[in-house]
Design a protein around this nucleic acid. Structure first.
Length: 384
RNA sequence: GGAGGGGUCGCAUAGUGGCCUAGUGCACCCGCCUGCUAAGCGGGAGGGCCGGAAGGCUCACGCGGGUUCGAAUCCCGCUCCCUCCGCCA
C-alpha cells in the first residue's frame, strides 16, 4: 500500500505512473479529497478531546476543593462532551477506512526508467543467452509436451482431474522425482552459491499478510480462501516472505536479507478460463522456488539485476537458452515498480514466458521506515 | 474445545481509578568531562493533526468494545505466548 503522505505531497508522481500503466488517474484526486476529509475530522475530534480532558481535570479539582455542586456540573458537561467525541470518532474511523480501502487498490509507483508501452507486445529483449534448437535439428519427430510427459509417466493428467478437477495434475514417478530434484537443486544453488537463507513458510496466511504483499484486495478473485478461519492459500512464496518482517524495524547494517523458499502456489487462474492451456501450463497448483531480498531502496535496481543473474544460473545449469525481457509500463504487476521477465526457449514451439519475474516495489517513503525489496521467482513449470 | 498464567518504550522492569504528562535500569544518539578505555554529568529519542517556524494539541501499556467526568489500572470479547486436560490426522 502506498503511503498517503507521498500521495499528498507528490500527487503528480502517482499520476504519471498510473498513466504509464494505462490506468485511470481519477483515483488520485479522490485520494487527496478523502485524505483532506479525514484530516479535518481528526483535527476536530482532537480539539474536542482536549476540551474533555480539561473538563476532567476540573472535576478532580472541584472535588478536592469540596465543591460538590461544581463537580456535578462539570461531570454533566463531561458526559455531553464524551458523547460528541464518540460520534466524531466514528466518523473519523469511517473516513480512514474508506481512504485505506481505496489506497489498497492503487498499484505501486513505477520506476522512472521503465520503458513505456501498453502491454506485453511492447516488452523488449534486454539480452539473450544460448541458441534455441530447431525441431529439425533433432532428426526425428518431436511430441508436444503434454504428450511426451504422459508417455514418460512424468504427468498423469487424467488422474489429476479425477482427484481435483481440471487444471490439476498428478506427477508420476519420473515427474515427482524430477520435481523433487529440481527443487532441492535450486534451493542448494541459491543457498550455497548465491547467499540466500532457506526458509520453509506457511502456505496459508492471514488476510493482513495478503494485504501486506499487495495481493488483497486486488487479486481476491484469484486466491483460494478458507471462510471459516479467514485464511488464504498463497499464490507465491513472495507473500509469506514479505510478511516475515512486517512491522519490524530492521537494524542498520543487517541488510541485505536474502531468502529462498520452496512452496506450492495456488491460483484460480481466472484469466485463463476459456483459453486453451494444456499439460503443465496454468495449473491451479504448482511448485516454485522463490528468491527474495530486502535491501536499501537505493540499491534495489542493482539487486534486481543480481537476482536476474541468480535466476539465469538456473537456466544455464539446465542448459536452457533464455532471454531477459525488460517489461514495459503497461505489463508490470500491481505491486512492482520495475520488472524483468525471463523467457526460456522451447524446442520447437514459440518462445514463451515462464513465471519468472523480478520486482522491487518501492513503498512508503516515510522517513522512519521504508520498504525495500527485490524479488522473485524461479518456476518449476518449465517449458517443455 | 476446556482450565490456569502472562503480553507496559529496542531489552528488562515499576506502576491496583485523578500526583502516569507512563517512572527506572540497560542499550542507543548528541554534547560535556577525560592520557586511552570505562565511569560520571547534561540533554535527546514513538505515531498523528495544526503550524513557515517556534510550538501547541492528540494518540499510544497485545487488539477491540464497555463502565466512568476521568482507565495501564475495573468489566466483556478476541488474539498471541507459556503450563495442563480433551479431541483429531
Amino acid at each position: 500500500m502506498l503511503s498517503i503522505e507521498a500521495v499528498r505531497h507528490e500527487p503528480d508522481v502517482l499520476r504519471r505512473s498510473l498513466q504509464a500503466r494505462r490506468e485511470d488517474v481519477a483515483v488520485v484526486e479522490e485520494l487527496v479529497r478523502l485524505d483532506g476529509e479525514r484530516r479535518a475530522l481528526v483535527a476536530e475530534v482532537e480539539g474536542l478531546r482536549a476540551e474533555a480532558k480539561r473538563n476532567s481535570k476540573a472535576v478532580g479539582e472541584a472535588m478536592k476543593a469540596g465543591d460538590a455542586a461544581a463537580a456535578d456540573g462539570q461531570r454533566a458537561a463531561g458526559r455531553e462532551l464524551g458523547e460528541r467525541v464518540k460520534r466524531l470518532e466514528a466518523a473519523e474511523r469511517e473516513a480512514s477506512a474508506q481512504l485505506r480501502a481505496l489506497l489498497l487498490t492503487v498499484p505501486n509507483i513505477l520506476a522512472g526508467d521503465v520503458p513505456d508501452g501498453a502491454d506485453e507486445s511492447a516488452n523488449t529483449v534486454a539480452r539473450a543467452e544460448g541458441e534455441p534448437r530447431s525441431a529439425e535439428s533433432y532428426g526425428f519427430g518431436l511430441k508436444p509436451h503434454w504428450e511426451l510427459s504422459e508417455d514418460l509417466g512424468i504427468t498423469d493428467l487424467e488422474r489429476g482431474s479425477k482427484v481435483a478437477g481440471r487444471m490439476f495434475t498428478v506427477l508420476g514417478e519420473a515427474g515427482a522425482r524430477l520435481q523433487r530434484a529440481l527443487i532441492a537443486w535450486m534451493l542448494d544453488m541459491h543457498r550455497k552459491s548465491h547467499g540466500y537463507a532457506e526458509r520453509a513458510v506457511p502456505y496459508l496466511v492471514l488476510r493482513e499478510t495478503m494485504e501486506g504483499s499487495g495481493n488483497l484486495p486486488k487479486f481476491a478473485d484469484n486466491l483460494y480462501h478458507d471462510d471459516e478461519d479467514d485464511l488464504w492459500l498463497i499464490p507465491t512464496a513472495e507473500v509469506p516472505l514479505t510478511g516475515l518482517h512486517r512491522d519490524e524495524i530492521i537494524a542498520p547494517g543487517t541488510l541485505p536479507l536474502r531468502y529462498v523458499a520452496h512452496t506450492p502456489c495456488f491460483r484460480r487462474e481466472k484469466a485463463a478460463a476459456g483459453t486453451q492451456v494444456r499439460g503443465l501450463k496454468r495449473l491451479h497448483q504448482f511448485d516454485k522456488v522463490e528468491m527474495y531480498q530486502l535491501v536499501e531502496p537505493e540499491r534495489s535496481v542493482a539487486v534486481l539485476e543480481e537476482i536476474v543473474e541468480h535466476a539465469s544460473d538456473v537456466a544455464r545449469g539446465l542448459g536452457l537458452p533464455f532471454r531477459i525481457l525488460e517489461l514495459c509500463s503497461g505489463d508490470i504487476g500491481f505491486q512492482f515498480v520495475q520488472s524483468r521477465g525471463r523467457v526460456a526457449s522451447g524446442i520447437h514451439r514459440r518462445q514463451r514466458k515462464v513465471p519468472i519475474r523480478q520486482g522491487k516495489p518501492v513503498r512508503s517513503v516515510s522517513d522512519k521506515r521504508s520498504c525495500f525489496r527485490s524479488s522473485r521467482c524461479v518456476g518449476s513449470d518449465w517449458p517443455c
